[in-house]
Design a protein around this nucleic acid. Sequence first.
DNA 1: TGCGGGCAATGATCTACGGCATTGCTCACG
DNA 2: CGTGAGCAATGCCGTAGATCATTGCCCGCA
Lengths: 254, 254
Amino acid sequence: MTMTQAKTLTPPRIPCDLCPLRRREAFRDFSGEELQFVANFKFGEHLAEPGTTIIAEGQRHPQLYTVLAGWGFRYKILEDGRRQILNYLLPGDLAGLQGNLMSEMLHSVEALTRMSLCVFERQRLTALFRQHPSLAYDLTWIASREESMLDEHLLSIGRRTALERAAYLLAFLDHRAHVTGVFGEEGPFVLPLTQQHVADTLGLSLVHTNKTLRKLLDAGVLRWLDRGSEVLDPARLREIAGWQPTKEGRRPFI
Amino acid sequence: MTMTQAKTLTPPRIPCDLCPLRRREAFRDFSGEELQFVANFKFGEHLAEPGTTIIAEGQRHPQLYTVLAGWGFRYKILEDGRRQILNYLLPGDLAGLQGNLMSEMLHSVEALTRMSLCVFERQRLTALFRQHPSLAYDLTWIASREESMLDEHLLSIGRRTALERAAYLLAFLDHRAHVTGVFGEEGPFVLPLTQQHVADTLGLSLVHTNKTLRKLLDAGVLRWLDRGSEVLDPARLREIAGWQPTKEGRRPFI
DNA sequence: TGCGGGCAATGATCTACGGCATTGCTCACG
DNA sequence: CGTGAGCAATGCCGTAGATCATTGCCCGCA
């Protein structure tokens, strides 16, 4: 068994009342009662190394995850190997809700950086719905938020040019990364994607992605590092993309 | 005021216990108690003529809809008018849940054929969550199902060729139409899309869509009518698309 | 010390798809 | 009865983006 396949499921180490997400401005805090329930709901923690598969398409997967730290992504593949990245997972995001609530997973999830995840049991979802309507509501809210992101991605892939798409993706990720606080306080503010990830998200070939990114680099709105990029001029990037982030207030998480 | 802009909101005419969806095989029935709540939850009915806008992007929209009959679609547009159709609405589908639960709509909804919709008030959603966990669960289930459809669309637009995409779309719609029973008992089994709709769904130009469809017509898997098409060979179509519908049991609706 | 694998850069060619323009049909409407 | 709008079909040409191939760099590992 190689290092990257190692599965780590430890009992809760960070108690929920010290959950790092609670302190962040972007997130809504729990009421005392909710906190108590969630703490009990929490089943363990999972540490995922970069490149590790967290959820595999086609398998039954009895757990749900909330991202505590790090970057991941969801994807699907065609039989011949063509891969489409559907969305990225950042702190506060829920993984495993997508697709029929209880049956086989319809997509895979992989860690982009080292991630830590909060693990819940799917089974206990019904208890959550029965006992905590406010949390159930949050869950629906989260699902509907994911949907609206997918809507935007669909618009982007379907109707934007390669340059606009690339700008959109990076603007989108950079914005989300700042809001959720994955970067940490002081940076560096690096989006940890390879060009292959970008290509698989945009529905472009690797070569063409490289050439498209080059235009953004030459325009000085972006810097490419090894295995990642840094947005230098978010405003310009959004302008190229024809996209603006929608202001949101504090959002819920589970 | 022209005919196509007319808005019709009538009080409930079909009582919920006679709801046509309840009789269909694809849908789960309510318990007596649930039925009573939903009947009370129901605010009215809405009749939409073809081409009519039901929900407009950017507006606050205090209602939710469940499709009772007919076809509709959700879409977004870029500032310069490029349009992307995100998904289609068929009987049993919920419209208006996507996007942040309570704020401005992030997409538009338009009727493709004459539609009848069941109208609910968003505000009363909290009561639903408080009083009927099972229905709340269904709501989340529905949202997560919509997500998985979007995932598939994203895969399709991002990674399939024009021919595969077209085959996928038609196979997908044909399958869903049969399952939900929009076609009625005896047909005709016509997907009521223009080639412009197909193009805007697939992220292709109108001309190229026409040429791509032509290949499917020539192969005999499809028949094109005025303002619509009929799938002649579903199996072949799925094969071309590299897609199979996933078996589902009875699904909930609200 | 050399070797292979992951990542990025870039040139050369090919093709899938977009954009433009025209035609023809049907149907609604004055 | 004529006119115009919506929909589909199709030919021509240009281009965005795919595919193939090569190079270079860095790093982990034998």
